[in-house]
C-alpha cells in the first residue's frame, strides 16, 4: 500500500484537480476548433498544433494525468467524426428514432 499511496500517479485526481484538468482541456480544445484541427494526435497535424496551440497544449498536459491527456484527445476526434456522420445521415434524409434506447412502456 505504501508503494501505491506514495506514488503520485496512483492517487486519483480529486474533484479540484479534475476541474483544473477539464478547464485546461476545454481551453486547448477551443483553440483546436478555431484552428480547424480535428485530430490533435495526428502526426501530420503536430506542427500546426505546436504553432497555434502549443502553449495551451503544454498547460493541458501538465494539469492532467497522461492517460487522460491521451484519452480526451482521442475522444474529441471520435466525437467530431460521430457528429459529422450523424449530420451526413440527416442530410441524406435519415430520421432520428422517436424513442430513447430503453425498454418500451407497457400499458
Amino acid at each position: 500500500m505504501g508503494l501505491f499511496s506514495s506514488n503520485k500517479i496512483d492517487t486519483p485526481p480529486d474533484k479540484n484537480k479534475r476541474q483544473i484538468c477539464w478547464d485546461s482541456r476545454d481551453k486547448f480544445f477551443q483553440c483546436l476548433t478555431t484552428n480547424n484541427i480535428d485530430n490533435s494526435l495526428d502526426p501530420k497535424q503536430r506542427d500546426n498544433v505546436e504553432l497555434n496551440c502549443g502553449e495551451l497544449r503544454n498547460d493541458f498536459k501538465n494539469k492532467c494525468v497522461a492517460s487522460w491527456f491521451k484519452y480526451f484527445q482521442e475522444k474529441r476526434y471520435n466525437d467530431i467524426q460521430r457528429e459529422r456522420y450523424i449530420r451526413k445521415l440527416e442530410a441524406e434524409g435519415a430520421q432520428e428514432l422517436p424513442f430513447k434506447l430503453a425498454p418500451p412502456k407497457k400499458n
Binding site: 500500500m1 501505491f4 499511496s5 496512483d10 492517487t11 486519483p12 480529486d14
Partner: peptide, 10 residues
C-alpha cells in the same frame, strides 16, 4: 490501484 483508502477519499 483502488485500495480502500483511495476509494474512500475519492
Amino acid at each position: 490501484r483502488d485500495s480502500p483508502e483511495v476509494i474512500k477519499t475519492y
